[in-house]
Structure formats: C-alpha cells, structure tokens
Amino acid sequence: MIAALFGAAAFGAALPAAAGPADRLRDSLFKRPGGEISGPPLARFVSEEGRVFVLDRSQGVPMLKFDDSPEVWVLAPSPAPRGDVIYKDELGEPVLRATRLGGLTLFSDERPNGEAVSLAGGGFPLRLAPLSPAALGERLLQASYRSGRIARRTIVFEARRVTPAGSALVGDAAIVTSLAFVRMAERRGGRTVLGQFNIVRFEEGKKPSVTLKDGILRIVVAPEQGLAGRPSSKRIMKVAGAQ
C-alpha cells in the first residue's frame, strides 16, 4: 500500500561515460562557473553507511526520500559559507550539504556530523498517486491500526471534507503521522506522549499545520502545494511534545 504512493518514471539524463564519480556528482549539483544548482534534476545517491536515497529537484521544491522509509522530506536550500548549499528540513535542521567541489554530505540523528555521499545513478520522481474514497478509507484504517498497536490503545484516524484533489495528500499524511507515532514510542516516555490524544483528524486548508487540543491531533493539509502541503513527522512529533 505504501509503495503505491509513489509514481515511477525513467531517469533519462545521460552521464558522460568518461567522467569519474566526483565529476558526475559535481556536474549534477552545480553549474560551472558560478556555483548555482544545476545538472540532472533527479538522481539516486548512497551514503558511506549504505543509506540510499533519491534527491528530486524536478518539481520546483527539492524533495528527498530514503529507500527504507515511505516518508518524503521536503527541503529548503539555503546558501552556506564557501559557496556551499545546505538543504534543510521543515524544522530548519540540515539534511544535506553540497559543496562547490562536488561533495555531498548527509546529516542524520545517528551521524550529526555528517557522512559522505556518492552518486549512484537515476531515480524516480517523488509524486503521489490519486486515491479513491475507498482507498483513502483503507489507508486511514491501516494507519489507525498501526498507531493503536504502537500506543497500545485505540487512536482513530478520520478525515473531514476531503476533495478528490486532496485525497492522496491526506493518505500520505496519515502514513507520515503513523511513522511519527512509531518514533515517539521508541523514545523514553513516548507512550505517555501518545496518551495525550484519541483522535487524529485530517482536514484541507490553505497552509499545512498541526495542532493538539482536547485530545484531538488536528492535521491540516494544503493540496495545492503537493507534498510540501503536509507536515513532516518531525513537525508532528514536535507539536506532540516528543521532540
């Protein structure tokens, strides 16, 4: 079910056969001269620890997805010293750093100082597939079941006034929310945090947001913004008080 969220398309940008790994990585990230982001808008990378991810810059907003997780991270590029570029997540925390010389560094909770990344080839565009009302209901039910099992209590996932254009985004937000709950439960006191609410309610609006009030975790998605129109698992954890 989770895999069905993402469409697949071929990566058609050919890389020069004579170029080495460092040259290909540099060319995929920067123009020469000037240091502006350029090159193939879509590529797959692998870190020195073996984590594989797709970096998709083909849709206006940079996005990243690890192969071992269904969550898509929406990134914001910002300039850094020496002409580098740092890609940050929704909370302003660094995820990637690209240097003008072609280096790419991945940051994570396990490796806060970063780990080197190399280009691995083509990737797939990070897009959402439309969901029928029945498929959306099934997605909410699965997320509710998974979250309840983690919390050891019933947590109801519900959606109100969802349009056809917003169905896929609500379905994705439900999965991201259940991922946030899993991460909460893994932390000390996380199950206590999960005891704050009984209902997760999804609604559409003009701006994505997360609020917690009267036992209801309310998540607003903005379909016009695509994948950038729903909060990340980190944002959900922060509002719930687990980060």
Rank of each mutant, 00 (worst) to 15 (best):
L75V: 04
A80P: 08
F11L: 09
A19W: 14
P81Q: 08
Q142C: 09
D172T: 09
A165D: 09
A8Y: 12
T163C: 04
R183F: 03
G103S: 13
M184N: 00
K234V: 13
L91S: 03
L106P: 02
V46C: 03
V85T: 15
G50I: 00
A43K: 02
E93K: 05
G39M: 12
R218M: 01
G39E: 13
L212T: 07
S69A: 15
P130N: 06
F11N: 12
V170Y: 05
E71P: 00
G190T: 07
K207N: 15
R97L: 15
S167G: 09
T192P: 00
R26W: 13
G205C: 07
S167M: 12
V182T: 11
R187N: 11
V182P: 00
D109V: 15
I216H: 10
S232I: 10
S209L: 05
S78H: 06
L25M: 14
G205E: 08
L15C: 09
F6N: 10
R24C: 04
K207F: 12
F6L: 07
A116S: 14
G190E: 08
P231Q: 01
R146V: 10
R51H: 11
R188V: 12
E186Y: 04
I37W: 01
K88F: 05
R187C: 09
D27E: 13
A8D: 14
Q225P: 03
A9G: 14
P16F: 07
G102I: 02
A8K: 14
P62F: 00
L141G: 14
M63C: 03
L106C: 03
R139D: 03
A135P: 08
I199P: 02
K234S: 14
R127Q: 11
L179F: 02
D23T: 15
V176L: 04
V182W: 09
G83Q: 04
R51Y: 01
R139I: 13
R183V: 07
R32Q: 13
G122R: 09
L5T: 11
S232M: 10
G166Q: 06
K213T: 10
R127M: 06
L140Q: 00
S108H: 08
L131Q: 14
